[in-house]
């Protein structure tokens, strides 16, 4: 009975938490929130799912190994860092689109960078927790 309630809530919580984490990521430049927090919240969402439905199902849901998230995130961050070189600017200069984006607001390469951080943190947290709960 307890598990049923837990599972049902989790089904609703998972998308909500994920949405919340992305929300934190996107608004990080203007209000509290950042890739770090976003990543951890997303990780917690998946971990919750794993507790409710078992690791196998969560892995199925994720479709990819969490290890793979880390290099992708790192690559994103580094890519955003070296992007300015092609415009003749120093490394890590933030580039901005001229037009504000609907809903999110002004978008720059800082967001790309933060997304990289988000993915790395998510990957790290999931890798650690998943490996531990699988093997220990």
């Amino acid at each position: 009975m307890k598990l049923l309630i837990f599972r049902t809530t989790t089904i609703f919580l998972l998308p909500l938490l994920l949405l919340f984490s992305i929300f934190l990521l996107l608004r990080g430049h203007y209000l509290p929130g950042s890739g770090f927090v976003g990543g951890i919240i997303a990780a917690i969402a998946f971990i919750l799912h794993a507790f409710a439905f078992g690791l196998k199902n969560t892995r199925k849901l994720l479709r990819m190994h969490p290890l793979a998230l880390m290099p992708v995130g790192l690559a994103l961050a580094v890519f955003s860092a070296i992007l300015p070189i092609f415009q003749g600017l120093p490394v890590l200069t933030v580039l901005w689109l001229d037009e504000p984006f609907p809903v999110v607001g002004l978008i720059g390469s800082a967001l790309l960078f933060d997304s990289g951080v988000y993915l790395v943190v998510l990957g790290v947290a999931l890798t650690i927790i998943f490996t531990i709960s699988e093997t220990v």
Partner: peptide
């Protein structure tokens, strides 16, 4: 501190 918190988790 924000960095420290995350790193210390690792």
């Amino acid at each position: 501190i924000l960095t420290a918190i995350v790193i210390s988790f690792g």
